[in-house]
Simulated scan of single mutants.
Amino acid sequence: MDLLSDVIGVMRVGRPALSLEVADPGWQTAAPVFEGARCYVVTAGCVRVTGPGLPKTGSSSITGPGDATVTLQVGDAVLVPHGTAHTLVNPTDGVARFLSGAYRMDQARPHPLFHDLPDLVGLPSRPDRYPSLHASIELVRGELDEQMYGRDVVLPALLDVLLVYLIRACLSERAQSQATGWCTALTDEVIARSLRAVHERPAEAWTVASLGAFAGLSRAAFARRFTAMVGQPPLTYLTWWRLTLAARLLQTTDLPLSAVEQRSGYGSAYAFANAFKREYGMSAGRYRHQ
């Protein structure tokens, strides 16, 4: 499994929800804080979105802090990766239509990749630059408009695809304006190689030196580069990922604790118990029970 799939996999909770909304002239609504991510795609008319992290009207991407407003035209999208409160308004005399998607996420332990995204990210319609995102939006629109058989199976899958393409586009936009962070770490072959190794083989006895050697750098050079891009030292992220994986296994499987310990890279029950309790404030057994 690739890094982005891993990130979404450990954060997602339940099935996504999707609806096609109709906004009459003057319509407005306040979207409260949500335990997950939201997205909107305008299919007719325009919708104005206001919230923290949005640019001034007319900007092509979202980078600045503070409240601001953007007006979405047909095909434009907005991703709300942290479930931040925001408002939506139809500012015109015509009827607007837009797709509204919701993805429940485990906000108690968000992956650092999501920290790298602003509260709201706007993506203007760019079929030439993001053809896969544009195509997925068209597929979702078609399923909603045509009322085809099997849509209850197709739509959740398409919504998952849409989320991935939205995050990919967001990371691509961010990478152009940032020299560090997860958006650049995923495109840096050296750091991405070490991250894939940690995700694919978390139980291996990794050290900074062995990860650096695997990535093709000296220990010191690798540690500096990894920390600058990821925002954490290599072994700090390794520990974080191992315990995140352990928690996911406790939530979603019936594996005995000994198997969870081994899969998450802990050679002894004592070491695992101490690390898990330090991270989650309770024993692994109690965590699974709750």
Rank of each mutant, 00 (worst) to 15 (best):
V154T: 13
V164E: 15
G181M: 08
Y130I: 04
L133Y: 02
V140I: 12
L123Q: 14
A135V: 06
V154C: 12
V154M: 14
L159C: 12
E146P: 01
P127H: 05
R168M: 08
G181N: 10
R151D: 11
A169V: 01
A135G: 09
A157F: 11
V140C: 02
R168S: 09
T180E: 05
G142S: 03
Q147C: 05
R168Q: 15
R126T: 14
R151T: 14
A175P: 00
P124A: 13
E138S: 09
A175F: 01
D160W: 01
Y130E: 12
L144I: 06
E173L: 06
A175N: 01
A169Q: 09
T180W: 02
S172R: 00
A157T: 15
I167K: 00
E143W: 05
V154D: 09
L171M: 09
R174K: 13
S136Q: 11
S177E: 15
G150E: 07
Y165C: 08
C170L: 00
R126Y: 07
G122P: 04
V154L: 14
V153K: 08
R129S: 13
P131N: 07
I137K: 01
A179F: 05
L163T: 02
L163P: 01
S132G: 09
P127L: 08
L159K: 01
E138R: 05
L166M: 10
G181T: 08
V161L: 15
I167D: 00
P127N: 06
Q178M: 12
V164N: 05
R174G: 03
A179C: 11
L159Y: 03
Y149A: 12
H134G: 04
E146T: 09
D160L: 06
L171H: 01
C170D: 00
L163S: 05
S125H: 10
R126W: 13
S136T: 15
L163D: 02
V140G: 01
D152S: 12
S136R: 05
M148K: 04
Y149N: 10
R174D: 10
